[in-house]
């Protein structure tokens, strides 16, 4: 078939008669205009590729089902299908908006991820286990008060009630517990920072 002279209408009718190569000629003839049109709306190569593919799937389905009746207006018909699919694409995206970063503003500059990364998570675990080991070295009465205050989050009133000592004694034991912990940390040059 002489590709350059054959009109779209002739190609469409020969395609409808089963001549698959006619579709290839039609796509080759119009792909650049249709694809550029789609890309000019969506500005994304991958999305444009998808919309282009969906457009021609609709074209093929309609032609094979005998729904095409716009003789001689093949390109405007395909462009209209492409246009409708572009609108569908934006409708879908409006339901689930996407944020596009550009050179002026990057969303990740204001959104921070507060969760620890693997390394910081491991350091945190190590620090916590070091602190637990240090606490184990404290005298029993100081250790008891410190555990109740820090790990069980009890008030000094509750601690005094549970241990049977006055609030001032509990406060004193807590104070000595912290002093002793600091002493051990300084003495052994233990680094407890994340």
């Amino acid at each position: 078939m002489n590709q350059s002279k054959t009109t779209d209408a002739v190609l469409v009718s020969s395609y409808l008669k089963g001549e698959e190569s006619s579709l290839s000629i039609l796509i080759t003839r119009h792909k650049q205009r249709i694809y550029s049109f789609i890309y000019s709306k969506v500005f994304d190569r991958d999305v444009a590729e998808d919309v282009f593919q969906d457009t021609f799937i609709k074209v093929i389905n309609s032609l094979k089902r005998g729904k095409y009746n716009e003789e001689g207006k093949f390109l405007p018909w395909v462009m209209r299908i492409a246009h409708n699919l572009v609108i569908d694409h934006f409708r879908k995206n409006n339901r689930m908006p996407k944020f596009e970063n550009n050179s002026d503003f990057n969303i990740f500059s204001v959104l921070s991820d507060n969760s620890l990364n693997a390394e910081k998570g491991m350091i945190k675990e190590q620090v916590e286990s070091d602190v637990r080991r240090l606490i184990e070295e404290l005298p029993e009465d100081q250790k008891e008060v410190l555990m109740m205050r820090i790990y069980k989050d009890m008030s000094f009133k509750e601690i005094s009630e549970q241990t049977g000592v006055s609030i001032n004694t509990a406060l004193g034991r807590m104070r000595y517990a912290l002093i002793n912990l600091r002493k051990v940390i300084d003495k052994h040059n233990i680094v407890l920072t994340n």
């Binding site: 579709l23 290839s24 796509i27 080759t28 792909k31 650049q32 694809y35 550029s36 890309y39 444009a48 590729e49 282009f52 593919q53 021609f56 799937i57 093929i60």
Partner: peptide
């Protein structure tokens, strides 16, 4: 701009 060859082949 033109679509990829794979897309055309797929169609």
């Amino acid at each position: 701009l033109v679509p990829k060859d794979e897309t055309i082949k797929f169609l």
